[in-house]
Design a protein around this nucleic acid. Structure first.
Lengths: 222, 222
DNA sequence: ACCAAGCCTGAACAAATGTTTAGACTACTG
DNA sequence: CAGTAGTCTAAACATTTGTTCAGGCTTGGT
């Protein structure tokens, strides 16, 4: 009854979009425990309408997945433009919607095709960007550029997935777009140190690498 | 009916232990979608018995959490003895039970008190071990030892949580205890490079650090 | 041989789930 | 104004969930 009033003055999103956003919020908060009724309540509609618009809960899930993936791809080019380039978490954090990074964190921890495709795309971007970094002289060349990009992506996204622990350990909310750079000191400081000079001494790194290669070769010939 | 025969010749675990192990397997595979009936089927018992032994599904979950935590603490001292020390994933991978690392990965992604306590304990160990590494000359000293240990733990555990992606990207199963060192080349190689010398060039690391500190200080004084 | 105790199951239960149905209300179209 | 399409809800549906109940089977003690 107040639909027109509400839509024009308060919320210009379509009902379908409002349900989708509510679903992202609920999925982010409750994970697998999200139900059609919880989503409906969060969106202020009936459970039946949720199904009506998305066919099924699986359909809703797929829509949410596709939406966050699209949002990431839209943000990507912008995020890739400035900054140090390796600050993947920072790029993800800079979404308009607060609940999107948390949804993404849940999504990454699952073994779905959607998350696989997304990670593959992120890795491809990282690889390309690392290449530019090397050419520009900001990144060291690597003996295995593709592998380095992959492992670095695992590190970065892993931190995002563990954002609850990051919050507790470092008092930093990696999913909050309102976090200021100053608040990131606890994470960015050590990360910058690790990625700037490593953590191994040169002697130990050499020894470890050699030991590793030896073991690898031994096992290979078995 | 064949209970005694089975127990003595094939499986000497108590029925309760068998249910617990089956539960770990199901939880690891299905996550939140694990049900009492699936656990019962995996254990070869009735759903009623699952509840009889553990009171409720929550009770079963708590028992499983406590069990893997105990297993980790038991493994810890052994794992800390040899190896490079930073190879947290390797230590976790070396469990007897194949499904334990996968269960752990699921557990870490959740915001439970059990996972918080576990991560805190792992961080404490890492901190202590890093200290020894610095003293022994294998690890560089850090401007923020505690922070470095925390961020490194996030990197390591994050890779474990994302083991599905690691498997796809690097063809490595971080949860499989049977993985040979040679199979880890794709992960350990880049990781060793990153942690050995960093990824930033010295010039860029200096610039980034300075830029970061400036921004942090600016925001602070606002 | 009897009894008590523990292990275990099949059947049933209430609650919650995703989904369907029937219909009310609104808005646009001829 | 009639009608048609779209939006939305209340109620009901079948299914699945965790859990309970009553009782059968085996074991061990006396």
């Amino acid at each position: 009854m107040f639909r027109l009033l509400n839509m024009s003055s308060v919320d210009d999103r379509s009902t379908k979009a409002r349900i989708r956003d509510a679903a992202i919020e609920v999925f982010a908060a409750e994970g697998g425990g999200a139900t059609a009724r919880k989503v409906a309540e969060a969106a202020g509609v009936s459970p039946a309408l949720v199904i009506h618009h998305f066919g099924s809960m699986d359909g809703l899930r797929e829509t949410c997945d596709a939406y966050v993936i699209a949002a990431i791809h839209a943000q990507k080019s912008e995020a890739m433009g400035g900054g140090p380039g390796v600050d993947l978490v920072g790029a993800i954090r800079s979404f308009d919607d607060h609940h999107l990074p948390a949804y993404l964190a849940r999504m990454l921890a699952e073994d779905s095709r959607a998350s696989a495709n997304l990670v593959d795309a992120i890795v491809a971007d990282a690889e390309e960007y690392f290449e530019k970094g090397v050419a520009a002289g900001s990144l060291r060349p690597s003996a295995d550029p593709a592998g380095r990009a992959r492992v670095m992506t695992l590190f970065s996204l892993g931190s995002l997935v563990l954002h609850h622990h990051a919050k507790r350990l470092l008092d930093i909310d990696l999913t909050d777009p309102n976090t200021q750079p100053a608040d990131l000191v606890g994470y960015a400081g050590p990360a910058l140190e690790i990625l700037g000079e490593g953590i191994f001494t040169e002697e130990f790194a050499a020894v470890a690498r050699q030991a590793f290669e030896t073991v690898a070769r031994e096992t290979e010939t078995l």
